[in-house]
Design a protein around this nucleic acid. Structure first.
Lengths: 347, 347
DNA sequence: ATGATTAATGTACACGCGTACATTTTGTCA
DNA sequence: TGACAAAATGTACGCGTGTACATTAATCAT
């Protein structure tokens, strides 16, 4: 096929290749002839052969947990990140390879590189567990380019053991709780997610930090745990209702919007309304926050930008600076809506 | 690398290839020697070279509209389908190649095949527009394996001009409206989406069909149009509020959950509550339906199964039957919840 | 024991590109 | 005009597989 183009243009195959790749010195007139011939014959180079010859797959792999039935994660979360990754990858001429990982059944990431299926890897929905950590350490040891999103390893502030792009959930949590305190709440219940997400521990630390800083006592019975699903928030409602009804809680800060909405629904069944009987703040600012009944005060996380930044960092060419490692913790922003906006605790 | 394995196992490279691919007769003992040698050396075949040699990319392409800022589509919709496609592709050893298409800027689908980037293609979020149609007709003409999801071309009941997998939205719409009629509603407003989705026209036809069948007059002023976004539903609220307040409407059927929720929110601002002052039914049964304030009656669409079926159909090997074309219209199911369940119109 | 059949393995090469290197053409300066 | 550098193009080959075909080893029926 390329041969036919070469013949039609009256040049060698090598020149065809040079023209199509814009490499090496080529006479303008020759270039036009080749281009015309290629168009004439409808020649499209085989990406398979190109990649094989270049020894580059041209693929950016994206690993995401496969949520069979229950979706613990918000689809918002992933589609935002995917969008960011996709736009950057596309701009740089890379394709996106989607890799589902069954939960607790981690894929062999190194094999993805060894088989040259991907040139770089972005991992979503990772947790801080021995198995995950081990995989990532191996990747780092072998020097493969990869990046874990929205998850931190190692202590906050320290230089991470491998590339990650996270958001500043500690500050986000502080801002959320500070807002609750600002509007007069004093007994703030906290629904966190599983501790094997740094997301969860960071939010807990932020909560504890601002509570202490504000001179409010931290009470064990106000610290609850769900699994980031709506249902888990819903199931905590009976307990929360007791706390609120007995005056032991006047606000709820949930580690994500889905749990916040679940709790809200459960509390409504018990006659308690967010924004009236208690203040409620979620996290993530998913579209669900705007769909909720009293619209949800929440913390907006730049998922899209996180994805974009990760892709940029991984696909950055030779010429570009690798200044990414610094800003690997992106800022978040509190969005105040009805679920806290109209609430006034009866001090 | 493969050479080293061959040497270590004391065989030729061809035998290594045979063992690893399980092809041709190989003595058991030889097989074990080769496997041991491969494991010993940590040999992983290059997918790049394999695909090049086999002239198969091993990729199933998935085209989805890139929603820059506004997300007209529910992420639920796409992530469900993606999940279905992914599980089936993974089971068959294919990779998923994600291809974003900027709205109104269609990619050259044939080039994807010509460049051998994909072996088959699934298209999500397509519309019935000249540009889309043209692309698909070309694909069909060239004989490339592809499938359009949740969109129909040609008349209902006719054999489609190219492979599609759709759900029976005509019946879904009928069921939804029939339910509204069953609970006593007589003046049912209908918020539809843009007419260039067969989804929309099918729902409209279903609406008209059941209204007529039930002897209810169809009134122009009750037929509204949004663009499937929450906002578009919200913006119709003033008009809807007038209709309801003046007794000209007692129910709303929205073509998706997001518009339903938008309308519900707008109506709430005007003192009208779904399930109390009017009945409300959405469509899609997205997770948002369960998060909404009165939980939303909706029509569940088997997005996951649609994706799975499409992938199955496209990746079906030689041995398997190609019995898919028949059942290209999957059934949907009405899910009754609070937004209609408790409503009793004052007849 | 011998030929015929089949199993097991080896040899050789194509796949379609990119590119190092060799070669030819063009341009420049004296 | 000739010598030389630079630009333009051609030639040749490697990339790592899969596999058609050739070859050798094993099995079996007679």
């Amino acid at each position: 096929m390329r041969q036919q183009v070469a013949k039609l243009a009256g040049v060698s195959e090598a020149t065809v290749s040079r023209v199509l790749n814009g490499v090496g010195p080529v006479k303008e007139e020759t270039k036009q002839r080749v281009l015309a011939a290629a168009a004439e014959l409808g020649y499209v180079p085989s990406a398979l052969a190109q990649r094989f010859a270049r020894k580059k797959s041209g693929n950016l792999g994206v690993v995401l947990p496969y949520m069979a039935k229950v979706s613990l994660f918000s689809t918002y979360y992933f589609s935002e990140m995917l969008g960011g990754i996709g736009s950057e990858a596309q701009a740089r001429g890379n394709d996106l390879l989607l890799l589902f990982r069954e939960t607790d059944q981690p894929r062999d990431y190194t094999a993805l590189f060894q088989s040259q299926k991907v040139d770089a890897l972005i991992i979503l929905g990772a947790r801080d567990m021995p198995l995950d950590r081990q995989s990532f350490e191996e990747l780092a040891r072998e020097g493969y380019p990869f990046c874990v999103l929205n998850q931190r390893y190692g202590e906050r502030g320290e230089v991470p053991p491998f590339p990650t792009i996270d958001a500043d959930h500690w500050s986000g949590s502080r801002e959320a709780v500070r807002h609750l305190i600002d509007i007069g709440c004093k007994q703030i219940a906290f629904i966190n997610g599983p501790a094997d997400y740094s997301n969860s521990t960071d939010r807990r630390d932020g909560y504890l930090s601002i509570m202490e800083q504000s001179g409010l006592p931290v009470q064990e019975r106000l610290m609850l745990t769900g699994n980031y699903s709506r249902k888990s928030g819903y199931e905590l409602a009976p307990h929360l209702a007791d706390l609120i009804a007995s005056g032991q809680a006047d606000a709820i800060f949930a580690a994500n919007d889905r749990m916040a909405i679940g709790a809200m629904q459960g509390l409504r069944e018990r006659g308690l309304e967010a924004g009236r009987d208690y203040a409620l703040c979620g996290y993530d600012d998913a579209d669900a926050a705007r769909m909720a009944c009293p619209q949800l005060t929440s913390v907006a996380v730049p998922f899209h930008e996180m994805g974009r930044a990760a892709a940029e960092q991984l696909l950055a060419g030779e010429g570009e600076e690798r200044a990414a490692a610094l800003s690997s913790e992106l800022p978040v922003r509190l969005i105040v809506r009805e679920s806290t906006g109209q609430y006034k605790p009866q001090s």
